[in-house]
């Protein structure tokens, strides 16, 4: 058992992290041996660069296990690469886009969107966590 894994399990045993946080920390240290990853508290791990966007939908406890399940993992690099495409929108097209946005009541000039600003948004998404619990299912959206 690696040192980091042992530390996480100790923190879980002492109640310093919840089961979900421990699971998330364990998945972030799933690298091959030889790589050193520092493991702090759950807050410290959340501030690290997010690598994947996860969307998980599963049946609520007590529900039929055969209900719908969704498990999606998308690398954040794909989101960053997709953002870069916004810079390729030509001026002629951006004028028409702005016009359509204004008709919908959105006062936004897409030419003002900068890649660096969107990068900051993506970087800060590491702390985003959405949990929706309904009687039928649990939905979790988070970055890891």
């Amino acid at each position: 058992m690696s040192e980091n894994r042992k530390r996480i399990l100790d923190m879980l045993a002492q109640g310093k992290v919840t089961v979900e946080e421990a699971e998330r920390l364990l998945s972030t240290i799933g690298e091959p041996s030889g790589e050193v990853v520092s493991v702090g508290t759950a807050e410290g791990a959340a501030k690290a660069q997010p690598k994947f966007l996860r969307v998980v939908v599963e049946p609520a406890p007590g529900q039929d296990a055969k209900q719908d399940r969704v498990n999606i993992r998308i690398p954040v690099a794909v989101l960053r690469a997709g953002i870069k495409f916004a810079s390729f929108i030509p001026t002629m097209a951006s004028t028409q886009i702005n016009e359509q946005l204004r008709k919908q009541g959105i006062d936004l000039d897409i030419r003002d969107l900068k890649f660096e600003d969107l990068e900051k948004v993506v970087d800060s998404l590491g702390e985003l966590q959405v949990d929706v619990d309904t009687p039928q299912e649990k939905v979790a959206i988070y970055f890891e």
Partner: peptide
């Protein structure tokens, strides 16, 4: 940018179960 997008794809995983 397309090449960068292609090289970012490793790690994509989609699993959907709808009953059987």
């Amino acid at each position: 940018a397309l090449v960068v997008l292609m090289c970012s794809l490793p790690g994509v995983k989609v699993e959907v179960e709808d009953g059987p």
